[in-house]
């Protein structure tokens, strides 16, 4: 009996080890240029299944571009992005669409279809990709809406929703097909503290309930710290720091320090590159003139 339990445990351990080692998303030496200007320079990332990972950095540092590259909306200049073992940039449109059916993406402001009701928005991927009868679609949609707490809002149009509610509907829509990978583009932007907490809580809960993997691009440090498993910091197109939230808090890296403490000046300079201030104002640094 004891031996059996041991065997079972070691088996479970093996299984666990396998799933942990099996990266859902792996990015190797990824470079991306936009209009001849390098946006990403040599990014390496390996994201295991089941994790919630945050990618952080200032505005315009290329983190949304990274998300687009993972979703196959952009093609890398060099390097590769693999999702579930498939190299995204090498896929044809049909294969890419097959892969995307297993992905969900939450856009910055929800990107709900403004001409469809809340119910029809969530039903959209189901109706497009499955031949389920309408009664079953109804049950599935109501389940997803229940999960984000908006079952009662099913008949509203997106224009009647607050920012936080729209984000939650979009989240229900993103997980409608039970995706293996969920991408979030700035899920916290423009939300009040309550909605922000709700969304953060939902991201974690949905990820665990669906057994999915989540990648979140954000610049909201404190909310993310509480809910993610791993954080990457990106600055000027490269990864400058990475680690679990605890490691990040303990980090002495000047960039991380500036970002987490929200300091105005640091490795990310406060001033946009400018000519010498004295020369710009027409002052000569001649001591004689000052005296």
């Amino acid at each position: 009996m004891q031996a059996y339990r041991l065997l079972l445990l070691s088996g479970l351990h093996q299984l666990r080890k396998f799933t942990v080692d099996d990266h859902l998303v792996s990015i190797e030496n990824l470079c991306f240029d936009y209009g001849g200007k390098p946006v990403l320079r040599g990014i390496d990332m390996h994201i295991p299944k089941g994790r919630v990972v945050a990618i952080m950095g200032g505005s315009g540092c290329g983190k949304t571009t990274l998300l687009r590259l993972i979703g196959g909306q952009l093609r890398p200049t060099s390097g590769q992005v693999k999702v579930a073992g498939e190299e995204v940039s090498a896929l044809g449109l049909a294969e890419l669409y097959a892969l995307r059916r297993r992905m969900g993406m939450l856009f910055q402001f929800g990107a709900l279809f403004t001409d469809l009701s809340v119910f029809d928005n969530v039903a959209f991927p189901l109706r497009e990709h499955t031949d389920l009868p309408e009664s079953m679609i109804r049950d599935l949609v109501l389940m997803k809406l229940q999960a984000v707490g908006l079952r009662g809002a099913r008949d509203l149009m997106p224009s009647a929703l607050s920012g936080g509610m729209a984000r939650r509907v979009a989240l229900a829509r993103a997980v409608a097909l039970d995706p293996a990978l969920i991408l979030y583009d700035e899920p916290f932007t423009g939300l009040d503290p309550i909605s922000l907490g709700v969304i953060g809580h939902l991201i974690r809960r949905l990820n665990d309930a669906l057994g999915a993997t989540s990648i979140m691009v954000t610049h909201d440090v404190h909310e993310s710290m509480q809910m993610v498993d791993y954080i990457y910091f990106i600055s000027a197109g490269t990864i400058v720091a990475e680690g679990t939230p605890d490691e990040i808090r303990a980090s002495r890296d000047p960039f991380v320090d500036q970002f987490v403490q929200a300091k105005a000046d640091g490795p990310v300079p406060y001033h946009f590159p400018a000519p010498n201030i004295a020369a710009d104002f027409g002052l000569t640094m001649d001591t004689g003139a000052l005296a």
Partner: peptide, 10 residues
């Protein structure tokens, strides 16, 4: 971004 969202929904 509705068109992009649609594209991402395959």
């Amino acid at each position: 971004e509705q068109l992009k969202a649609m594209d991402m929904m395959a």
